[in-house]
Nucleic acid binder design. Sequence first.
DNA 1: CGCTATTTGTGCGTATGTATC
DNA 2: GGATACATACGCACAAATAGC
Lengths: 253, 253
Amino acid sequence: MKSTAPLLATPPQYVLVAQQLMDDIQAGRHPVGSLLPTEFTLCTQFGVSRHTVREAIRRLQERGLVTRQRGVGTTVKAPPAESAYVQTTAVISNLPQYVEDTRLVTSETIDLIADEALATRLGCPAGQRWLKVTGLRYTDRGELPMALTDVYINGAYGGVRKHIDASQVPIYTLLEKHYGITIVEVQQEIRATTIGPADAKRLTVEPGSAGLLLTRRYLSERNQLIEVAVNLYPADRFAYVSSVRLQVGPERA
Amino acid sequence: MKSTAPLLATPPQYVLVAQQLMDDIQAGRHPVGSLLPTEFTLCTQFGVSRHTVREAIRRLQERGLVTRQRGVGTTVKAPPAESAYVQTTAVISNLPQYVEDTRLVTSETIDLIADEALATRLGCPAGQRWLKVTGLRYTDRGELPMALTDVYINGAYGGVRKHIDASQVPIYTLLEKHYGITIVEVQQEIRATTIGPADAKRLTVEPGSAGLLLTRRYLSERNQLIEVAVNLYPADRFAYVSSVRLQVGPERA
DNA sequence: CGCTATTTGTGCGTATGTATC
DNA sequence: GGATACATACGCACAAATAGC
């Protein structure tokens, strides 16, 4: 284990510029709806190159704070969000009513080696060891399962298997807790799919009917793939709902 | 006024490089888990500058296909997707990006009054006037349409109809621009569905096959429903990808 | 353990293309 | 047509992290 604290001395210039711009937006010096100064103006203002300014504005753009249009300029769209990141409140909704809590009932826990097909599905090199936990996810009310869940856990962390059943928390938090690793990136993919006969039987739906396939991939600091969760939802039992609401500017509206 | 040719001349070089790299990953020439050639190597291979290569790789990174590490290289993390022409969106905050990469070809524009069924689907009172724009959305690669799109625009803002074809920007930005309104909230819902015969024919897929139904509702400051966009994607032509990365340091409060 | 080569990250300068007004 | 402003693309240099010797 390495104990060298990776302390950052000074942030890159484009980060500083981005922070200053966010401050200015927050303080109302660049009100929502107004145009930001042009790239050239910002260059002279901050005393940096255009490349640096563009990199800074790119950050604002990625967070949805500004939009850019060629020939027009950079428009301020929203003040910087309070905490960290996107405000996407992902709500999992059931058709009859909203779901507060769900239970994962595991049916199988096996060790396996990723063959070519699985490696492709997970996005890992073939031959890697994985712990696969299969189960059905139930809502509080209703007897039918909401989803068929496969969780693949990197073989290096297979020790969590004994904590899974007992726990109500997501599996990746167990990994963070027991192994001291930190999940820094979560990639999520949602696609439609056709539910095959075997899965259809377990979910109690018609074979060949439509389903939602939601895959989450958890990456650690070193970009190591720690966990992959694959959820299959019958079309009529699940919808993925999210919303983004822009904050009203500092001025009273 | 220009002749409003909605024709894309040639994609930027970094897009071409990115597409070629995705093809190479898909074909197994850059297997998952392996390192991509270095930036310098790619420069000579493609005959472009490092700037262009980095821009291309940035696109792959945003889609979660690769991760980068200083001193190590660029690691392939996942194949692009099942099918060749799968387009991915990132977080909801950079919708404009997604629109720029695709072309909407409108086939029909009609005025209508919301009956009970439509009012329920849109979430508006029955009897309200709407402008409905129907079209197919294409990617820059592949001839098959990526999606069947219905955009419902609040009747009060029907005047945008003449600007829709010419523009490459999202329709809601047109509304913001021409009517001075501000979109404050975007609600998004994703669910799986079965594609009916009529839609299947237009999308060139099997009737009864699975599709992804993505609905976005745009609300103004006074919570007025301005626009509803309904997109139907065949299962094998689209995946909704988003990624959240935690910041390393306490970059900003 | 330190040195070095490699590879991505940061930053600069410049030029040209293209959309908008 | 002209002016403006962002987009694309080339070049170069040095910094920082990593891996291997």
